[in-house]
């Protein structure tokens, strides 16, 4: 209906339909009487979830899964994702029930399973997928400082199973098997999630440092014959680096929030990743770099906690304001 039609109707009808301006001022969600006729309904639980960082990353990863699976007709990869998500979610729910958590919806487990499924090859047998997911969730609940996990769960489990079981990791979720025209999809998804979790410095510093080291290594002819710096800057390895930096490096529970700490974190991850790649190559260098940065952060957190405990003791003894503990995580 056009605005002219509305204006030609009696004032009483218009008022009955649109509501009076005074009503709009009092109703929550009403913005402008000329543009909005009804108060905006509150978002449903699904929309609320999708607005969270975990909901956003899950949606984006599912999108990558669909694109990758349709192009490659990789049903086994999708099956692995389902298996990984169900396993991780089930363990998360059980742990939540045991701890009597108020919120037991396993969104973290679902994201972890999704990442694992997108990294593992479709040729990996389902028991290995189950085991990898179980290790990931177990590491999240066991290896932690305060309430936050030390290591990225998916990276920890993928690295462990790569070394122990030699699991095939194709990183098919990074769309490397697709023509390069699909690469913008990965970049767009990465931009969305990086902006959503506010990790721009982390991603830029990681990619900048990683590419810079590889560029210098290529200039100096470093690396070995099978794993040259040039390979890491090309498909498919560069896709894996982008996927890791966008969806694993930015994991809020296992990465710092402050910009300065994000920079340090990313430098450690990039230097270790590039060094491992240039030294031995293989597939694990991205995961090793990320876990090294996680460990670096854990050491920093432990030092901070000890310093805060000392401060707390001094505070209780002296009662001075200067000695008041200021740790966000342990305070």
């Amino acid at each position: 209906m056009s605005s002219n039609d509305q204006n030609q109707r009696p004032v009483s009808q218009r008022t009955a339909q649109m509501g009076s301006p005074s009503m709009h001022r009092n109703q929550p969600g009403a913005t402008n009487s000329t543009t909005s006729t009804r108060p905006t309904p509150p978002p449903g639980p699904l929309r609320k979830f999708l607005r969270t960082p975990k909901g956003t990353v899950m949606l984006l990863l599912l999108g990558l899964m669909v694109v990758g699976a349709i192009h490659a007709s990789d049903r086994a990869g999708v099956a692995n994702i389902v298996i990984a998500m169900v396993t991780a979610s089930a363990i998360d729910v059980v742990v939540g029930l045991m701890r009597k958590n108020k919120r037991i919806f396993p969104d973290g487990g679902m994201v972890t399973g999704l990442i694992i499924g997108l990294v593992l090859s479709g040729t990996v047998h389902w028991p290995v997928v189950v085991l990898t997911s179980a290790i990931a969730v177990a590491s999240k609940h066991i290896l932690k400082i305060g309430r936050k996990p030390i290591f990225n769960p998916a990276a920890f489990a993928l690295l462990l199973t790569l070394f122990v079981f030699h699991t095939g990791q194709s990183w098919w979720g990074d769309l490397a098997d697709l023509p390069v025209l699909f690469l913008p999809l990965l970049l767009i998804a990465g931009v969305i999630i990086t902006s959503r979790v506010n990790k721009w410095p982390q991603v830029f510093v990681y990619l900048g440092t990683y590419f810079l080291i590889l560029t210098l290594a290529a200039s100096l002819h470093l690396g070995n014959a099978s794993f040259t710096p040039g390979d890491a800057l090309r498909v498919p390895l560069v896709n894996a680096a982008l996927f890791m930096s966008f969806f694993m490096l930015t994991d809020p529970p296992t990465s710092p929030g402050k910009y300065a700490e994000q920079v340090t974190f990313s430098v450690v991850a990039a230097v270790v990743s590039a060094a491992v790649y240039l030294a031995v190559g293989g597939l694990a260098y991205l995961l090793i770099g990320l876990l090294a940065a996680n460990a670096w952060r854990a050491v920093g957190l432990l030092r901070a906690s000890r310093a805060n405990q000392a401060s707390a003791q001094a505070y209780t003894q002296n009662g001075t304001e200067k000695a008041k503990p200021r740790n966000e995580m342990f305070g």
Partner: peptide, 12 residues
């Protein structure tokens, strides 16, 4: 980095 490594330094 891509252009520097393009001059025959890849495994390819």
């Amino acid at each position: 980095g891509y252009s520097v490594s393009a001059a025959g330094s890849t495994a390819l």
